[in-house]
Design a protein around this nucleic acid. Structure first.
Lengths: 112, 112
DNA sequence: TCGATATTTTAATAGTTATCGAATCATTGG
DNA sequence: CCAATGATTCGATAACTATTAAAATATCGA
């Protein structure tokens, strides 16, 4: 992952509502969460939520799909993985802190 | 680490010059790097560098000490560790991605 | 097609962050 | 004490980010 992308990802997460939204999306797993549900859970007006989700999307941290009237957002685990990898390698000392510890084996599903 | 602190740390790293500076500091290890040296390496005027270093300091990611006329900055590995821990636990899926992989055993020194 | 629902886009505004020259402060050597 | 060096603070300005109401878009059910 190149520095430019890393900065976009960090900027995206560096905001109260977006960090909270991303956490919810990570919890939700592959099934994702509708924009409106996120807005309600975070107590943010829909247009604000939309703005924040667009930022996360632009940073490549979430994907979206339409499902009937709703637009469902999901965390992009690979992107988060890439971010963690960069931080681990570049910001955690010469000795990369985890050589064999990928954050995710792959597009994991909701545990269980 | 609480969300508020996490956001400050992410904001601090989400900037070209600061991310670059922090990387250099991580590389440098405990001995740290003087403000002026960072400014020169990053091709940023001293007052700008000072501004960015203050942001990193405010986020708790670096510490500073005076050494004669210079002010030497060092990466705070524990803080970075804390950030990584938060991200791993909250943004990397239910299954915390590394239970036994601390980013650092402790205030590590320059490898070797 | 119409009305309702879910979301995004637009546009205006307020607030925050970045930039950098000039002034200031701290330390040192002479 | 003074001049030089290394760094920060101040102040002005430009650029970006967040917020939200209102308008527009898309989908659905009847």
């Amino acid at each position: 992952m190149q520095a430019d992308r890393v900065i976009r990802a960090l900027s995206a997460l560096a905001q109260e509502h977006r960090l909270a939204a991303f956490r919810l999306l990570v919890q939700a797993g592959e099934q994702g969460v509708a924009a409106g549900v996120l807005a309600e859970k975070l107590q943010v007006p829909p247009s604000s939520m939309s703005f924040h989700l667009a930022q996360l999307g632009n940073a490549g941290l979430v994907t979206q799909r339409r499902e009937s009237r709703s637009i469902i957002y999901s965390a992009d685990y690979a992107a988060m993985n890439g971010l963690m990898g960069y931080l681990t390698e570049n910001c955690c000392g010469g000795m990369s802190c985890s050589q064999d510890t990928e954050c995710f084996p792959s597009p994991q599903r909701k545990s269980a």
